[in-house]
Write a protein that binds this DNA or RNA. Structure first.
Lengths: 357, 357
DNA sequence: GCTAGGGTTGCATGCGTATGCAAGCTGGCG
DNA sequence: CGCCAGCTTGCATACGCATGCAACCCTAGC
């Protein structure tokens, strides 16, 4: 028993006593067809279990209505949330999602070739970048590329990110205002734009205000690496009294190590601040103070932008930055001033205007 | 500037001075073509940036090499892990993954239609079911369907699951052996096969051994619902001293509520056991005793089975059950006997053979 | 030198749908 | 009654690639 043939438009046409074109039009919204014919076709299609073949359709229309999506680091709860929102957003606009997972920390190039073979209408790369050659190749082919939570050195690739730079600065100010002087920074992936920008913001503010640079370790945005980094950091004689972790996922790792291996209490012995405001970080056990990257707004911006780029491939590159807040919870010592309630949350809004806006 | 035309096989053929067929053969492994010709074609293809069009290829071969994957409940860390493993597994076998997210707790039917339009080679539904009509429809169309972590009432749909029934029984025995008598059960989604089977195993063992049925609440496999259920359960005068949670995700919710709202200590005041052995449940803060559903073996079985079903669509339905272990950590009072070390883990292996195997 | 056979190649066609074009039909208006 | 406009419909073709078939070339064997 070979894979049974699907019913085709021609089969339906025969049964309904119309031409194949009529069947096609019956399934094309806005096409010129009499209501009566449309109904007759619909009935015949129902009888045969007919569904238009998206592959054949894409071949003629030269639009696949598929969007290639790359995602990695799904251990970080931020990304499953993003994936879910993205799926709904694209679905709502009539797009399908071809998902692939690049090797963490590397370019998405290899798997991308397979995805490009599907003539996707656009590419969304979450927490991933692509080589500039491939970026050029996509541009030459007229395929919009959108980086999510990353930016590219190649300025021609659009992106949607959170406020990495401002977040980093604000966290520096928050911790210093809270009275901390022995700061630590736990970097994510070294050559990722997010980690770089957060660090630049953090260290930039410190330097501008005459503070020593923080102790530094690398956690690669991974739980186990972050745990190891925490051990190194906390075992030092000049152990920091506050650590800014490149994201919430690493912050939870640090919290676990600090409490269960070093017997530290948070925030009494150690203040922690994360980035993302997502997942377990919000649970009472962690109650993480964190700069937020609001998933829904970021995904909304992504979907809107990618649709726009599909409509108008010649549109200029855009770098959308979605506003976040420093959400104050219990994992870091709280400054006496600057905390305001906002939408049932406490956020940090220092009164003094930052000189180096 | 309209979306630029991709180079086609004909373009490459012209440049290389061969026929379009030769180009096709150059990109078809095993096709009859002289090495020299293949190289000339490859060079021409490189110059033009040519990639075979997967859409056109699928139209002629009648195989898309795309597998539709449904996933929901991504808040439960189990599923992102599964998704990642699945992506790599399918990729390795040359399949792409068309991902969609059905509305939680409902049939996957609506979005499924769109996916079927792509003539996917198979469907994998994780934590989802489909209506029996649609199951029939897929069978009629010769599309293999595989349920992951669910079974269907319709016996004709294959599945890969963990040992839900045995796990439930073992957990009952574990808790009773540990001295617990006031048991609670936190159900997942009422009409999901996993929750039903785990409960059947749990309650079945209790009944067979003359114990009262557990107190029961429903958490719908969701964090907030599980939290609410935990509040109801723990506020009772006859509060349980041990709760079997339908999965780890809900168990963490219960742990949070128990500790931070009721001031209970785990496992001194309350024992918790989960299911899945995944994600935050393994962190020291939760250190959850849990029946494991090993992701990699489950995904391996899934990939193997789905490929087999594609090769041979007439193959009989199969229900693969992947073995798990009751991994013993710190969230539940430990029986004095029955714990053995296995691969650097403590697992519960009661000596007495279960009569009702 | 001739033939058989294996390895290559091109030709022609088909996959299932969308769509430009022209033909057919209908109704309204002069 | 004639004509024109507008709505439907069918015809024919194109989309880009795979593949059966026949033609071709080359080599080995006799």
């Amino acid at each position: 028993m070979s894979p049974k043939r699907h019913a085709t438009a021609t089969d339906v046409a025969r049964l309904a006593g119309v031409s194949q074109s009529a069947v096609s039009r019956a399934f094309t919204p806005g096409a010129s067809i009499a209501e009566e014919t449309r109904l007759r076709v619909a009935e015949a299609a129902r009888q045969l279990g007919y569904r238009p073949n998206a592959i054949a359709r894409s071949l003629t229309t030269r639009r696949s209505r598929i969007i290639g999506v790359a995602a990695s680091y799904l251990q970080n709860h931020f990304y499953p949330d993003v994936l879910e929102a993205l799926s709904r957003g694209l679905q709502a606009r009539g797009y399908q999602m071809l998902l692939f997972m690049p090797d963490a920390g590397r370019h998405a190039d290899p798997q991308l070739q397979e995805v490009l073979a599907w003539r996707v209408d656009a590419l969304i790369l979450a927490s991933t970048t692509l080589s500039s050659e491939l970026a050029d190749q996509c541009q030459a082919a007229g395929i919009p590329v959108l980086l999510f939570n990353r930016t590219s050195r190649a300025p021609s690739v659009s992106s949607v990110t959170g406020e990495n730079l401002r977040g980093g600065r604000l966290i520096a100010e928050f911790l210093v205002t809270g009275g901390h002087r022995r700061l630590g920074f736990l970097a994510g992936i070294e050559n990722s734009s997010t980690s770089r920008d957060r660090e630049r913001g953090f260290c930039g503010w410190l330097e501008e205000h005459g503070h020593r640079p923080p102790l530094r370790e690398v956690g690669l945005y991974r739980f186990d690496e972050a745990s190891a980094a925490a051990r190194r950091l906390l075992a030092r004689p000049d152990r920091p009294d506050a650590i800014f972790c490149g994201n919430d996922h690493m912050a939870t790792a640090v919290a676990e190590v600090a409490r269960h291996e070093f017997g530290l209490r948070i925030p009494r012995d150690l203040s922690l601040v994360g980035f993302d405001d997502t997942g377990p970080a919000r649970w009472p056990s962690f109650s993480l103070t964190s700069f937020s990257q609001p998933v829904q707004p970021m995904v909304d911006a992504t979907v809107a932008l990618v649709c726009e780029m599909i409509e108008n491939p010649a549109a200029p590159t855009r770098h959308e930055v979605v506003r976040g807040e420093l959400v104050v919870r219990g994992s870091a010592r709280m400054p006496t001033e600057g905390c305001v309630s906002l939408a049932e949350q406490l956020v940090w809004r220092p009164a003094v205007v930052d000189a180096a806006g």
